[in-house]
Nucleic acid binder design. Sequence first.
DNA 1: GTTGCGACTTAGGACTTTCCTG
DNA 2: CAGGAAAGTCCTAAGTCGCAAC
Length: 718
Amino acid sequence: MVQRACLLRVVSQLKSGPSLSVLISRVWSGKPQEGMLASCVASSINMIGLFLQLILILLWTEWTVLLHLGSEHKDKHREKEKLKQKDGSSDKQKEKDKYKEKRKEVKVKGFFVIFPPRIKSEPESEDFYHSPKHNKSLKREQKKGEVGTDGKKKVKKEPEEKWKWWEEERYTDGVKWKFLEHKGPVFAPAYEPLPSNIKFYYDGKPMKLSLGAEEVGTFFAKMLDHEYTTKDIFRKNFFKDWRKEMTAEEKAKITDLNKCDFGDMHEYFKAQSEARKALSKEEKQKNKEENERILQEYGFCVMDNHKERIANFRIEPPGLFRGRGDHPKMGMLKRRIRPEDIIINCSKDSQHPKPPPGTKWKEVRHDNKVTWLVSWTENIQGAIKYIMLNPSSRIKGEKDWQKYETARRLKKCVDRLRAQYRDDWKSKEMRIRQRAVALYFIDKLALRAGNEKEEGETADTVGCCSLRVEHITLHPEKDGKEYVVEFDFLGKDSIRYYNKVPVEKRVRELFGMLCPDARSLFTTILNKHLQELMDGLTAKVFRTYNASITLQQQLKELTSPEDNVPAKILSYNRANRAVAILCNHQRAPPKTFEKSMQNLQSKIDAKKEQLSDAKRELKSAKADAKVRRDEKSKKAVECKKKAVQRVEEQLMKLEVQATDREENKQIALGTSKLNYLDPRISVAWCKKWGIPVEKIYNKTQREKFAWAIDMADEDFEF
DNA sequence: GTTGCGACTTAGGACTTTCCTG
DNA sequence: CAGGAAAGTCCTAAGTCGCAAC
């Protein structure tokens, strides 16, 4: 589609145009019509100019205008902004030095060594894979091994000493490991044919399907409850792929999906899942144990002398592809992965995983410049999928830590950078101006970079550099504010980004000649530029930086020392929420939201009543005590007092909970917590206010952020 | 220089387990 | 002690970004 040319490119094509006022009035007056737009672009008419002007307006917008948190937060945000500008550099080095010192102090305690017999029995070969640099730690671990060898049970009983990888040296040369051993993937269970009494009907008549066709048919049958099985694209894609699995006869007969009746099959699967739920305790326990056994066998690997948890050791089962949003490939058959599709990565001297009997791996390689253990190529997009380690592993943790360190380095130079890109808006070179505009959005609105994607291969979503004209509307005035830019587009995962951003009208200047091919590789150009500005800087670092700094600031602002623990946690959640809003992390409101909110409210009401009862009782007890003046009645008063207090606390807790939940209706906190917020900020906050870290991070999260929990003091500054 | 590929992070929703309450 | 809500886990899609191949 011609009119799909991206916004920046459109902007870039502007040379000169009709009078400004005409253009502006056209835009201000409403959405550009599709046809109009198409013809404009096609004939190089300068309707496009409008968008240049939009950019110009934005360019001249004052920094202090707070864009992302919506109008109510504007003022707060301004302050934040000031703060942001102020505390540019500092403390990081301090932090680092402190940590270095701490490291020096740390004595090496024991490491829990896995598979000690193996590791112990072949130390020579390990040495072979360890650079001199690593010999030190290796020796330590071997010592450990000796201690641990005399029995797993014994080791298990002891409070397990966690390996503090963050106290060890890192590889610097692109090597990711020296030794890697694992058992390979767990394949999806083989297809179980339907019992003979469960039938598929075509055109009202029962029909026995071949095994292959039946299997794929069951994928569809299982999904019948989902709305998307009614979607045209889904049905079309499914039917096309299904036919490929049919025998010639089946193909000849089954020509219309609408004549297929999967009802029986659907009922069967439903009953099966019911039956699974209704299993007896013992049976459930048995299943659990079996799962645990598989986890123990396949869920771990040994990487450089340490047993590490694997994130996804199960191969994705076959099924029907369901992309997010309006995906053109929804309904296509996701093929079953066989050993022959699998590439194994492990070290040469490890015990290679064995393929299932009678099969072969596609390849076994020994590439220690990558972190994956297993890979295969998926058939829908042709993308490569990997089996990698858990976030608690050294290899993921180091990277995560490094990510936040990069963001902290950005903090040091962000002022300079912002000044620079503002300056670049005036540049004579179009590319530079363009780059600077993109950067502005990425920084201020925390937009994603927005890489190019192949049209028709995926849902139509965009990011900063791939925004198109139709994603932006200009309003001369909206909600009492002048010059409001309205963003409305689908971002990653087809999540809608909607934001009205008031901008200040300023001097406008026309850009000069523009380069029409500027868009291609735009994110590459952008990132190259960023790389020059700061080592390791890319577009996404801004998201990390802005998220983390916002958390830190919000925590400072929202935490009241006199608050009790639940209230402080509410503050934390609010700070977290501010970040989630900034990053546009949304969720569908839980289906049961209204109901559970009502329940909570009635609980609160009940609690209130209970409170007034308790108060009344206290009063009468007091009166009683006054009259009687004996120990017993005094005690009773104390008792009642405590009861009132307790109920008050409970009520408060409930109310806090209600507020929290209401505010959280459509906002997902998990993503930012897991991916954008430097955990050391949260850990420091917990330490400072005496909040148990368990209140903020659950077990998995504590494992992932073990490095931060261990190293951050209460005075950590991002 | 451009394109496509490979590796890795980030993402929301489905599914499962745990917790709470009546 | 069941049943519903909340919390936690699993799943895998969909991004980012660098680099090799053309």
